[in-house]
Design a protein around this nucleic acid. Structure first.
Length: 600
RNA sequence: GCCGGCCUAGCUCAGUGGUAGAGCAUCGCUUUCGUAAAGCGAGGGUCCCCGGUUCAAUCCCGGGGGCCGGCUCCA
């Protein structure tokens, strides 16, 4: 099963034509004009509006950071001139001549790729003419709020075999306030960056010596992960899954059989040869679970079989793509493989979707969208089976009342799949959960079960992961909660803060009582003043700060304060311990699962 | 992998062709304090690594590594 990428909002294909996109598209023309004024030799290519702004790609020398202001200043002049955008339809020959004369070889290439018979239009403002389908705003003066954001290398037509161009990113909004709000959102996202918070909160690190893309979970990060894992394990049992453990290394033949050697070779990690045998570190768990399935003859009565494992896998990812916990080279999937009869597809998928939604809701991810990827050109297996499977998926999603989009032909060659996308606290979308139907692996491994009539039948597989990977989900959670984990997840749930040394005895007793109530509690008995202790605890985003001074000690109470700065009335220790313990229990999942236990 | 930027104390960052600094953290002493930083003092550096230029390199040049923004990729 693949670890799915983050879906960063991005336009592709169709040209959007809402007013804001139109404004941004026009702003990209103005930017291209500005760059051409600054660098007459720069060749222009394309410059579309995108989700939160626009970009334009140029064939020119790389830009330097100080070019941002220069380009902005030049753009401001063009805006101030309030030039009209003029549309003009020209013949193919005219267009070709115009851009060829200017040496705009990329534009010439674009014109040549426009289907014969399509209208070719130009948009001009001032002296700047661009090949463009439009539409645009009326005048440059309408661009009231814009900003050049960054530079990047980008390949011509997005193909890395093509020359690399210089991309300039910018954004534009209808008003200065909107722009300001957007820049504030960018700041907020930066503030929540899991890489920054991971360091500040001492959750994890990546060490150059250990290797890029390999995560070291520090004690506090390990607590969060353990809580998540415990919750998963508990739910797996409730839903009829069986936990298995399998090795992280295997003989090369296993991955040859699974097709990974052929289809996944460039991502395989660390081959080694021992005793004349070649071994590889695993990039996926499925072949191992399949090996367990194959260890004995299976009856139709046993199905569905659901093997689950928090399976660590290693994949070589190109160095430039690594990113915090979101894109790593070693990670642990909350993986499971279901082996079923074809007539069980619908019910099992429904169970998977329910399971996934239940889990996601625990973290406050209520806005979940599904994406159904259907049969691609080079599909494997029988068309009729695909049709049945896709129909089953649609029924499942409809029954679950889930909005879903269809990605026609976007499925893997071995089967259709469903991905769930969640929206986090500041509106960004992430994809973690995935369910993939697989007709191919059972074939490759010649999996069978004995049908009621005694015949040997081939099972279908479902690969599924709910968190996707522990690493990725952790990153999403850190950013979603901005590091302030809910009580049940917080590495330190409560910290005792003594006002002075005189309360140390009581402070220790309070901590002991909390520990006895299964709370993750520590105590700050340092010689610092209370204000400093509070500040430290605040920065660690500890949910409860329990202030104890001499007054509290005398009354056998504690004075709690929450991390949102709220002071609560002094509370007797026992009462507080019970209350916090009750509040710290991991949330219970929804309806009792309907899945039946596999018969043993 | 590709384009660009960056790498200085544990962390965040100043800085210079003549081998280096701040704040926080750490350690010691003083302070015993009631809701977001008490005071004083001390220790701490292969200025990412390897080569080159130079009388002299943390600084300039070349190569390598890592990180960051993108691109490409993510069966």
């Amino acid at each position: 099963m693949s670890e799915r990428p983050v879906i960063r909002p991005r336009e592709k294909g169709d040209v959007p034509d809402d007013p804001l996109s139109r404004l941004r598209h026009s702003a990209s023309h103005v930017m291209a004009d500005a760059v051409r004024r600054l660098r007459p030799k720069a060749k222009v290519t394309i410059g579309p509006a995108i989700e939160n702004g626009f970009y334009y790609d140029f064939d020119t020398e790389p830009f330097a950071p100080e070019d941002i202001e220069k380009i902005e200043a030049e753009m401001a002049k063009i805006v101030a001139q309030d030039l009209p955008f003029v549309r003009k339809v020209v013949s193919r020959a005219e267009a070709l001549r115009l851009f060829a004369d200017q040496g705009e070889t990329f534009k010439v290439e674009i014109i040549q790729s426009i289907p014969e018979g399509d209208e070719i239009s130009l948009y001009q403002h001032g002296d700047f003419v661009d090949l463009c389908a439009g539409p645009h705003i009326e005048r440059t003066g309408q661009i009231k709020a814009f900003k050049v954001l960054s530079f990047a290398g980008a390949y011509w037509r997005g193909d890395e075999r093509n020359p690399q161009l210089q991309r300039v990113y910018g954004t534009a909004f209808a008003s200065k306030d909107d722009l300001k709000a957007h820049l504030a959102r960018l700041e907020e996202a930066k503030r929540r960056d899991h890489r920054v918070l991971g360091k500040q909160l001492d959750l994890f690190s990546v060490d150059e010596l250990v290797g890029p893309g390999f995560v070291l979970w520090h004690p506090k990060g390990a607590i969060v992960r353990t809580v998540l894992e415990d919750m998963i394990r508990r739910e797996l049992v409730r839903r009829g899954y069986q936990a298995v453990f399998t090795p992280h290394v295997a003989r090369e033949q296993l991955l040859e059989k699974s097709g990974h050697m052929a289809h996944y070779k460039e991502n395989l990690f660390g081959g080694m040869e021992l005793d004349g045998q070649r071994y590889l570190v695993r990039p996926m768990n499925c072949p191992f679970h399949i090996a367990i399935y194959r260890s004995q003859l299976r009856s139709h009565r046993e199905l569905p079989i659901r093997y689950a494992e928090l399976g660590s896998v290693y994949r070589y990812e190109r160095s430039g793509v690594l990113h915090g916990l979101l894109r790593v080279r070693g990670f642990t999937q909350d993986d499971a493989h279901l082996f079923l009869r074809e007539d069980q597809i619908e019910e099992e998928l429904a169970g998977c979707v329910r399971f996934g939604l239940d889990i996601l809701r625990l973290f406050g991810f209520a806005d979940v969208k599904a994406f159904l990827a259907t049969r691609p050109e080079n599909f494997m297996g029988e068309k009729a089976a695909w049709d049945r499977a896709e129909a089953a998926i649609r029924r499942v999603l409809e029954a679950a009342g889930m909005p879903f989009e269809v990605d026609e032909g976007g499925g893997a060659f071995y089967g259709p799949k469903i991905d769930l996308k969640i929206r986090d606290a500041i509106g960004r979308e992430w994809q973690c959960t995935t369910f993939q139907l697989d007709f191919q692996m059972p074939e490759r491994f010649d999996l069978e079960y004995v049908a009621p009539d005694g015949s040997r039948q081939r099972p279908v597989m479902i690969h599924r992961a709910l968190f996707g990977s522990m690493e990725r989900f952790m990153a999403v959670l850190i950013e979603h909660f901005a590091g302030a984990f809910p009580l049940w997840l917080a590495p330190v749930q409560a910290r005792v803060l003594t006002v002075s040394e005189k309360a140390d005895v009581w402070g220790r007793e309070v901590q002991a009582r909390l520990l006895a109530a299964d709370l993750r509690a520590d105590a700050d008995l340092s010689a610092d003043k209370l204000g400093a202790k509070i500040r430290r605890a605040q920065m660690e985003k500890i949910p409860y700060m329990l202030v104890v001074g001499e007054r509290d000690m005398a009354a056998r109470v504690v004075s709690p304060r929450t991390r949102d700065g709220q002071q609560m009335p002094a509370t007797p220790l026992d009462e507080l311990a019970q209350r916090l313990a009750a509040e710290a229990v991991p949330p219970v999942l929804g309806a009792t699962p309907a899945e039946k236990k596999p018969t043993g």
